[in-house]
Design a protein around this nucleic acid. Structure first.
Lengths: 213, 213, 213, 213
DNA sequence: TATGAATGAGGATTCATTCAT
DNA sequence: CATGAATGAATCCTCATTCAT
C-alpha cells in the first residue's frame, strides 16, 4: 500500500543520483525553513540540479514533500514492526523497563540518524491537515497491535495497571514523543543529550508518574 | 513588556470595529490553512474590509500574526498567574487533585473559548522558529515560579515525590498540553469531549503513571 | 495669467499656516528625492498636517507640485523684469560687464535663497514633458525682449558682436544656467562658492570664449 | 571595470532575443515617461514578453535601468577614447576648428543613433542622485586627459588662450552638451537640425564668445 | 477647516510549472 | 534524461484620494 503511494508520487522509476541530491537538499531546507517558505529554485540550487529536473521526477512541489515523508514512514513503520515481532518472539522483553529502554533508545537512534526528515515530518504534520489525515491516521494502525500484545504481557506479569491499552499507548507516546519532538525538532538540546539518563527518567515517569508511592 | 510589544506591532491606536473584523477573519483562516498559505486578500474579503486597511493597521502580514498571538498570550499568561496566586493565598488547593482539576478544567475552558487562536498559536509556534524563540521562551518564565510554589506545597504534604520541580512542570505540560493540542488543534475530537472524565484520567496519569501500585 | 493659474491649482483661498507648512515640507522632500519618489504621507508627516489637509487645499499631488513651481516662477520672472526695466531706465548698465555682473550675482542670490525649490524646478522640468511645455515655454517669453533691448544697446556701444539676439541670449543662459544648475541643484559645490571670482570667469567666457585674442 | 558592473547587473548570461526586446521596450518607454512613471507590466507588454522574464534577467527594475545606462556608457566612452587617440596619432587635427567639427559631428551622430537611450541617460542622471554619483563621476575621468593633450597642442599653436584645461573642457561641454541635451532629449528640434550650420555656430561661440573682436 | 481611517487600483516581485532544445 | 529560459497568476504592499466626523 505504501509502495503504491510512493510510486504514484514519483513519475520516474530509477533512483538516480539526481533524485538523491534533490531529496537531500529538499529535506535540509524544508527542515530549516518549512515547506511553504522554501522555493523549488532554492532546492534546485542546493541539489545542483536544474529546476526542471525536480518537476520531471515529482511533478509538483507538494509531491516532492509527500514522497519524502512517505519514504520516511515506509522505513519507520516496518522497522518498528520488525523490532517488536522479533523481540517478542524471542521473549526478550520480560520487564517494562527492558522493553521501554530498548524501544526508546532504538527510536532515538533512528531519529538522530534522520533528524532533518523527522523535523520536516513533525512540522508539516502539524501544519498541514490533509497530510495529517492521509499519512498518520492511515498508516500507524498496523503497528498498534504489536504494542498491545506487549502491554497484555506486562499486565499479566503485574507490572502494568489494568488500564485500557489505547490509553497506555497514548501515554507512552506522550511521554516519549513530546520529548523527542522538543529535543530533535524544535530546540537545540539534541546536541547535549545523555540518552541513558534520559531513558531512565522516562521509564520512571511512565511507570510511576509524579506521585509519592 | 507585553503591552509594549503589542503596541509596536500595531500601527494605529484605536481599537475600531475594522480591527476586530480583521483579527477575527485572520484567526479563522490562519487556523484552518496556516499563516503561510493564507493571502491577505482572503483575509480582507472575509473581514469585509479593503486589503489596504490591513496594512494601515498592521504594516505587514507578519505583524498581523504577531499581534494576534501576542494578544492571546497577553490574556493567557496573566489569567494563569492570577488564578494561581489568588487560590494559593486562600489555601484552596490542598490536594494535587483539586489543584490539577481546577487548573486543567479552567485552561480547557479558556482554550475552548479561543480554539481557533489556540490552533494558530500551536501551528505557528511549531512552524516558525523565530516566533518560538521570541514568544514562548520569552514570556512563560513569569508563570513558572507560581507553579513551583504549589509543587513544594504538595511535596510537603506528601503527595508528590521528591522530584525536581522543572521535571514535574514539564511532565504536567506533557500530560495536559499534548492532549489539548491534539484534541483542540489537530483532530476533530473537541466536539465530543467529556471534560470531567478526561480530567480524572489525566490526574491519574500524572500521579501514578501506568504502573501497578 | 500666472495668477489665474495659481488660483486654479489651489482650491482654498487663504494662505494659512498649514498651507505654508505643506509647501515647505513638499519642497524639501521633492528636492531631495524627486516628486515621483515622494509620498503624500511623507509630506503630511513632515508638515505636521493630516494627509487629508493636503488634498483639501491642492486636490491632487500633481497640483501641489504645479502650485509650488508656479509660485517660484511668479516670483522669479517679475523680479527679473523689474530689475531689467528699472536699471535700463536709469542707464545704469553701460558695459556688458556691469550688466552681467549685476544680473548674475542677483540671480545667484535668488537661487541661493530658494535653493530647494530651484532644485525641484530643474529636476521636474527635465523629467516631466508636460510641465516643460506648460511652464517654461509659456512664461519666459515675457522677459526675453527686455534682454534684447540691452543686447542692442551693447551692440551699439561696440561691445557685442553683431550676432542674432536669440543666440546671444541662449549663449548667456548656457554659460550661466549650466553652472548654476550644476552648482545648486546637482552637486554639493554650492557650499564653497566664491561668487565674485565665479562671476568674473563667466563674464570672460561669455565675451571672449576660449580662443586667443 | 565596466564589464564587471555590466555582468553584475544582469542575472543571466546569454544575450537572447528576449533581452534585446526588453531593453528596446524599456528604453523607449523610459525616455518618454521616465523611469519612475513606467511600470514593468508596460515594458513587458511592449517587449512582447512575460513580466517574469524581465525579473529573470535583471532581478529588479532598478537593475534594468542601470544595465541599460551602463551599456550606453560602455559604448560611449571607449568610442570617444578611440577616436581621440587614433586621430591624435595621425596628427589630423591641427586646428581647433577641425578638431571641434569632427568631434562634435561625430558625437551628434552617435546621439542621433541612440537618441532614446541618451534621453533616458540625461533625465535619470538629473533625477537620481545615486546614479549621478556612481555612473558619471566614476567613468568620465578616463577620457579627460585625452582632451587635455589636444588643448595643450592648440595652446602651443596659439589658437587657445592660456586658460586652465579643466575650464576649457567644462566650457566645451557647456557649449556642446547643453545644446545636445536640449535638442535631443528635451525639445522636438532634433527633427529639423542642420548639423553643419550648427557646428559652425558652436565653434564660433567656443572660440570667440559674444564679444566684438 | 482639519482630520485620519478607509479605500482599492496598481506596483514590483516571486514562484511553481511548462516545454523546446 | 536533463536543462533552464520563459511564463503569468498570485502575492505582499504602497499610495493617491475620499469622506464621515
Amino acid at each position: 500500500m505504501l509502495d503504491q503511494l510512493l510510486e504514484e508520487t514519483r513519475c520516474s522509476k530509477k533512483q538516480t543520483d539526481k533524485l538523491a541530491q534533490i531529496d537531500k537538499a529538499a529535506i535540509e531546507i524544508f527542515s530549516e525553513k518549512g515547506f511553504a517558505n522554501t522555493s523549488t529554485k532554492e532546492i534546485a540550487i542546493k541539489a545542483k540540479v536544474a529546476e526542471g529536473t525536480i518537476f520531471k521526477h515529482y511533478g509538483t512541489k507538494e509531491n516532492l514533500l509527500l514522497n519524502i515523508l512517505l519514504k520516511f514512514i515506509k522505513v519507520l513503520i516496518p522497522a518498528i514492526k520488525k523490532d517488536l515481532i522479533s523481540k517478542l518472539d524471542q521473549q526478550n522483553f520480560i520487564t517494562v523497563e527492558s522493553f521501554l529502554s530498548y524501544f526508546f533508545k532504538d527510536r532515538v537512534r533512528f531519529i538522530q540518524e534522520n533528524q532533518d526528515i523527522f523535523t520536516v515530518f513533525i512540522k508539516e504534520i502539524v501544519y498541514n491537515e490533509p497530510l495529517r489525515k492521509n499519512l498518520v491516521n492511515l498508516h500507524f494502525d498496523e503497528v498498534k497491535y504489536k504494542f498491545f500484545a506487549y502491554f497484555d504481557l506486562f499486565k499479566k506479569n503485574g507490572e502494568l495497571a489494568n488500564i485500557d491499552n489505547g490509553i497506555i499507548l497514548k501515554h507512552m507516546f506522550k511521554i516519549f514523543l513530546t520529548d523527542a519532538i522538543w529535543v530533535f525538532a524544535l530546540s537545540d538540546e539534541h546536541k547535549t543529550v545523555d540518552v541513558d539518563k534520559w531513558t531512565a527518567e522516562l521509564v520512571g515517569e511512565f511507570l510511576n508518574g509524579m506521585g509519592k508511592k
